[in-house]
Design a protein around this nucleic acid. Structure first.
Length: 298
DNA sequence: ACGGAAACCTGCTGGC
DNA sequence: TGCCAGCAGGTTTCCG
C-alpha cells in the first residue's frame, strides 16, 4: 500500500492490534526483506524477540514501530530504537491467526503476546525491515529513525510548514511533479496523489517550479493534503488485493480519482478526453485542456 | 543541482 | 493456447 493514505491505514491497524503487545517470537525468511538491516537477519530477529511495541508512527510513506527502551531502562540517555517498515510497491502488514495459511510472499512473521500474528507480506520485495536508532527530528517532531532523516514532513503532520515547503519548491529549478514526488521536499505524495493534486490545481506536472507563483504552489500543496485526507477517509486507494489494510480489506477511493488511470475518459470538469504521458519511467494522467503544458520546458 | 535511466522484484494483461 | 512485451502505487544509485 504505497502512498501516504494507504500507509496511514496500515499504521492505524498496527496501532490498534500491535501497540502494547510484545513479539514473543520473530521469524524472518530470505535475505531480501532485511537487506537494509546491515547487521543481518539473525541480529534483527534476536533484537526484536521479547520487545514490547510502544508506538506505531509514520512520516510520509515510512512506518516505524517504537520499541520498549532497553537502553533507557539501563540508564542510558539514548533515544531508543524502532523497527522501520517500508512497504515499497507491494508490501502488506496483516494481523492474523497464527494457524492461517501462510501467504506465498510472507517474509516475516511476528508472534504477538495476545496470540495473534503480525505478518509482513511483499510480492515484489521492494519493501523491507530494519531496526535502527531513533534520533531527534530536525523538524521538531520528537524522534525519528536515523535512516529517514532525509525525509521531509508530510502534509498531514503538524511539523509540515507549507510556507517553507512552498519556498523550497520555488527555489528548485525543476518540474512541479518532480518536486511533489521528491520526498526530501514533501513526503507521502506518490504517483496517484501527485496527479490528483495537479488536476485539482489545473496545473501540468511539467510546469517549471521557479516560474510558479507562491499562491499556485500553495494551492497545489493544499490540494495534495486535501486529496490524501479524503482518500484516508475512504480507506485508501485499492486497485486490487495487493493494497489492503491489516485485516485484508481494500480501500475504495479509486472511484473518486479524477486523473490517475483515466486516460481516454472525459475530464470530470470539462469533458475533454484525459491523456496519459510517459514521465520519469512511469505514467502521468492529466486533462490536456484544464492542465496546459508549459510552452517552454522546465 | 538536475535529468535520465537503471537497478531491485513478481505477476498480471493485452496483443499477436 | 502460448509467448512476450509492457506495465504496476517506490526508492536508491550512478552517470552525464
Amino acid at each position: 500500500m504505497p502512498e501516504l493514505p494507504e500507509v496511514e491505514v496500515v499504521r492505524r491497524g498496527v496501532a490498534a492490534h500491535v501497540v502494547g503487545r510484545s513479539f514473543t517470537e520473530v521469524q524472518v525468511s530470505g535475505h531480501r526483506v532485511a537487506r537494509r538491516h546491515l547487521p543481518g537477519p539473525v541480529d534483527l530477529t534476536d533484537r526484536l524477540r521479547g520487545r514490547v511495541v510502544s508506538a506505531a508512527r509514520r512520516r510520509g510513506k515510512y512506518l516505524w514501530l517504537e520499541l520498549d527502551d532497553v537502553a533507557a531502562r539501563a540508564g542510558s540517555d539514548a533515544d531508543g530504537e524502532a523497527l522501520v517498515i517500508h512497504l515499497g510497491m507491494s508490501g502488506q502488514l496483516l494481523v492474523e491467526a497464527p494457524e492461517a495459511p501462510r501467504e506465498k510472499h510472507a517474509h516475516a512473521l511476528f508472534d504477538l503476546s495476545d496470540g495473534h500474528q503480525l505478518r509482513f507480506v511483499d510480492q515484489r520485495t521492494f519493501g523491507g525491515l530494519q531496526l535502527v536508532p531513533l534520533v531527534a527530528d530536525r523538524f521538531g517532531s520528537g524522534t525519528v529513525p536515523q535512516i529517514i532523516t532525509h525525509i521531509a514532513p508530510d502534509p498531514l503532520e503538524p511539523a509540515f510548514d507549507q510556507q517553507a515547503v512552498g519556498r523550497a519548491i520555488r527555489r528548485r529549478k525543476t518540474q512541479l511533479k518532480r518536486a511533489l514526488l521528491d520526498q526530501s521536499l514533501v513526503s507521502g505524495i506518490g504517483n496517484i496523489y501527485a496527479d490528483e493534486a495537479l488536476w485539482r490545481a489545473r496545473l501540468h506536472g511539467e510546469r517549471a517550479t521557479d516560474k510558479l507563483t507562491a499562491a499556485a504552489v500553495r494551492e497545489v500543496l493544499g490540494h495534495a493534503a486535501d486529496v490524501m485526507t479524503e482518500a484516508l477517509g475512504h480507506g485508501g486507494t485499492s486497485f486490487d488485493s495487493l493494497y489492503v489494510n491489516v485485516n485484508g480489506a481494500s480501500g475504495y477511493f479509486e472511484r473518486s480519482l479524477n486523473a490517475y488511470g483515466r486516460q481516454g475518459k472525459p475530464c470530470r470538469r470539462c469533458g475533454t478526453l484525459m491523456i496519459r504521458e510517459a514521465f520519469m519511467n512511469r505514467s502521468s494522467f492529466s486533462c490536456p485542456n484544464c492542465q496546459r503544458r508549459p510552452r517552454t520546458a522546465a
